[in-house]
Computed example of a mutant assay.
Amino acid sequence: MFKAISRRSMALATLMALGLALITTATAAAGVNHAAIIGGRDATETYSFMASFRLSEVPNHHCGGALIAADWVVTAAHCKGLMKPGETRVRIGSLDRDKGGVVARVKRIVTHPDWSGRDSDGERKGDLELIQLDRRVNLAPIRIADAPGRVGDPSRVIGWGMTCESMARCENGSEKLQELDTVRVPDNRCVDLNSGTELCTSDSAGRAASACHGDSGGPQIRKVAGRWELIGATSRDGDDVDERMGGGAGCSTNPDGGPGVGVWTDVTHYRSWITRTIGERAPAEPRS
């Protein structure tokens, strides 16, 4: 998984103790600094639905999300360990992760029932989580698309994650929201992807550019009839499996050092579950 950002190694240990499914960034590309996200740019417009999560115990931004209703945000299930009702703050609608926008707190957490990190077959499924806010916010949510689009269709990912492959230099991410133009690519480009529930995505220009640690849960969006609609939630690296991480490939590169791919949970696939859950206002899961 792309993991949460923190300033201290102690905080990273805390994340692991909380049970997040994490993937460590390889650093063979150390010394090569990429523009943010990795390879992106400062946001060129305001995204009223963009959310940043941070927990008081680990006070820095750690995951992104998308406002899909006045009091509901969708994010990645592997961010669950840092979601605590009454404690985790959510900043929405700002280009700056540290100020502006509207701030609320997490009230309720609903994780997709398929999520277990890895199932008995070693597959990751249902990396999706719904967060109910402690109040309704007066910001425009993003509509969930009817479908994710076809292979070759353009999309965009946004977030405040790492801006280069080196954890030592870039773990703090970017203060300014970053955007990266992407494209959906064939499922077989990604390792261990679940076709039909996940999206394999690469940089639209074919460069070594992608989301990275700290971008988890953030939105993948595409233009439909001139407006942005939500199709994905940032999940994990698409071509580096655990046993390859010693080989040096990071978020934006593949094991051979070439341009890499990433996996996004297909939010459109889970649209009925999301609609049903929000309508039922499901009870909160027990606090950890």
Rank of each mutant, 00 (worst) to 15 (best):
G257N: 02
V110Y: 05
A51F: 03
S235T: 11
D134I: 00
A205Y: 12
G196E: 03
P219V: 07
G226P: 02
R169Q: 13
D153C: 02
D119F: 06
P259I: 00
T24H: 13
T46K: 14
G173Y: 05
D181E: 14
H78C: 06
A66G: 09
L199G: 03
G19M: 07
T163D: 07
G149H: 11
P85Y: 01
A209D: 06
G238R: 05
M16K: 14
P59C: 04
G246V: 11
K125Y: 09
G161N: 02
W228V: 11
D242K: 10
W264F: 15
M10A: 15
I5R: 15
G100P: 06
G93Y: 03
G232C: 03
R108F: 06
L180H: 01
I131H: 00
A104D: 05
W115T: 05
A28D: 13
G65D: 01
S210Q: 08
L82D: 11
G214D: 00
A13D: 15
D98M: 12
D153N: 08
A147Q: 10
K80C: 09
R281F: 01
T111G: 03
G262R: 10
A70C: 11
G149I: 10
V261N: 09
M167D: 14
D240H: 12
M1Q: 12
F49P: 07
I109C: 05
I274K: 04
H269D: 13
D127W: 08
G64E: 05
L199S: 05
R222P: 07
G232N: 06
R124M: 15
G64N: 00
N254A: 07
H62L: 11
R136V: 12
L12R: 14
K176S: 15
S116F: 03
L67F: 02
A76N: 04
R105D: 00
P186Y: 08
W72T: 06
P283Y: 08
W160T: 04
L18A: 14
P59V: 07
A26K: 06
V58S: 07
N172D: 15
W160I: 05
D42G: 10
L20I: 13
A21I: 14
V261S: 08
